[in-house]
Design a protein around this nucleic acid. Structure first.
Lengths: 139, 139
DNA sequence: ATAATTGTTGAGACTGAGTCTCAACAAAGT
DNA sequence: ACTTTGTTGAGACTCAGTCTCAACAATTAT
């Protein structure tokens, strides 16, 4: 994954700092992560980029749709990458923190129906089910 | 609504401070509100109760199920009272902040089905649809 | 009742994720 | 080259929420 292409695709001026931050974000693409984790990743690689710049790019990516904010933690704003991932919702294990993703067209269709009834124009939604994953429920 | 009954029902030791905080919370029962709004309410009535105590009772009520935390604002933890209100989900207008509540058994049933497939034991969930209410969409 | 125990209070210090400032700098446009 | 516009970094700042701890109030045991 080419950081420069990613930046130019979204009309984000390419700079040394942004390339490094983007690289860190790409390396976290299979997780849910927060801005501090991006910073931590850079720190571990001994790449000097300021906190502010990391927060700035994460927020910019979020605005441009490269990242999707996900409310999985009330303390930190978590994100997931949107490339190579369709919209989905989350099951969150209260015991071990595991996150299971799922897609369900039928639920989405019913949401659309509810919105029609309420004369509401849906733009996005988040469905989060909290509970226990199989392992934690059996333990 | 009797604050003392509310407290004793949930085995919460009744004190002067708690009665006042509970009264403030009850007066906000038809809104979504955060701890600071409870404090503001007390301040306006010139009732002296410390911030810490208000936060403490709100959290205790939340743990005991008197209040339900609702993620409607990323800055403040919002709550709604659970007495005289069944479980429901929310439509949230991004423009004016209006909140429309709705209940839909069919959606909940599908959620249960998804959990079964994923061997996940659901305990609670939150579904939030963000968009534009009728007035804001037409404006 | 009285004493011992346990829970609650308030004022303010503290925490920490996230934002803001602003002068120095770098990229793009002319 | 020169001007304009956007970006950077270091650290100060914000502010919802938590913690501290000694004084106090409610409950339980004696």
């Amino acid at each position: 994954m080419d950081t420069n292409k990613l930046l130019s695709k979204y009309s984000i001026r390419s700079t040394k700092a942004r390339q490094e931050i983007a690289k860190a974000i790409i390396s976290l693409r299979h997780k849910h992560f927060c801005a501090e984790e991006v910073i931590e990743r850079l720190r571990k690689k001994e790449i000097k980029v300021s906190r502010a710049s990391a927060y700035r790019l994460v927020k910019l990516f979020s605005k441009r749709g490269v990242l999707r904010p996900v409310d999985l933690n009330k303390r930190w704003q978590m994100y997931e990458t949107s490339f190579d991932k369709n919209h989905h919702d989350h099951l969150y294990c209260l015991n071990c923190g595991k996150i299971i993703e799922f897609e369900n067209r039928a639920i989405e269709n019913l949401q659309t129906k509810v919105c029609k009834e309420k004369k509401f124009k849906p733009l996005k939604h988040s469905l989060k089910i909290l509970g226990l994953c199989r392992e934690c429920d059996n333990a």
